[in-house]
């Protein structure tokens, strides 16, 4: 019997598992996709009603619930699509140009 779980193949210098099985999960978070952004969402926390609609619609899943129950985008990953600003029922989010 071959112990498939522990067999490693070598391609060049890289060791890979059989079937290219990845044992880590959620490792794409190593890449901070926030660098793709040209517009940045700015939330007016005074206006935010904590409904979570931005959170439910964000394609990145990068909107974070704060301790006070309000929502804000994690700018490490936000690609600046603007869905949250467009869908916010109380218009608490505005998109502003990213400046270096």
């Amino acid at each position: 019997m071959i112990d498939f779980e522990n067999v490693k193949l070598k391609i060049g210098d890289t060791e890979i598992t059989i079937g290219a099985v990845l044992e880590s999960n959620g490792s794409t978070s190593n890449l901070k996709t926030g660098a793709w952004r040209s517009m940045r969402p700015v939330t007016d926390l005074e206006k935010c009603i904590s409904c979570g609609i931005c959170w439910s619609l964000c394609p990145e899943g990068c909107i974070i619930k704060r301790k006070d129950g309000k929502f804000e985008a994690d700018l490490d990953y936000c690609k600046g699509c603007g869905i949250c600003a467009n869908e916010c029922p109380v218009k608490a989010i505005t998109m502003v140009m990213e400046e270096k």
């Binding site: 999960n25 959620g26 490792s27 794409t28 978070s29 190593n30 890449l31 901070k32 996709t33 793709w36 952004r37 409904c51 979570g52 609609i53 959170w55 439910s56 619609l57 964000c58 394609p59 990145e60 899943g61 990068c62 619930k65 994690d74 490490d76 990953y77 690609k79 600046g80 699509c81 603007g82 869905i83």
Partner: peptide, 28 residues
């Protein structure tokens, strides 16, 4: 639950979808 959906997230940030990808929201 937030906005009628479970809070647990099974798709990690940092995936390479285009900005505004509808399919990424679908997968969530």
């Amino acid at each position: 639950a937030i906005a009628g959906l479970p809070e647990e997230e099974y798709l990690s940030c940092g995936h390479r979808a285009c900005a505004g990808c509808g399919a990424a929201t679908a997968i969530r």
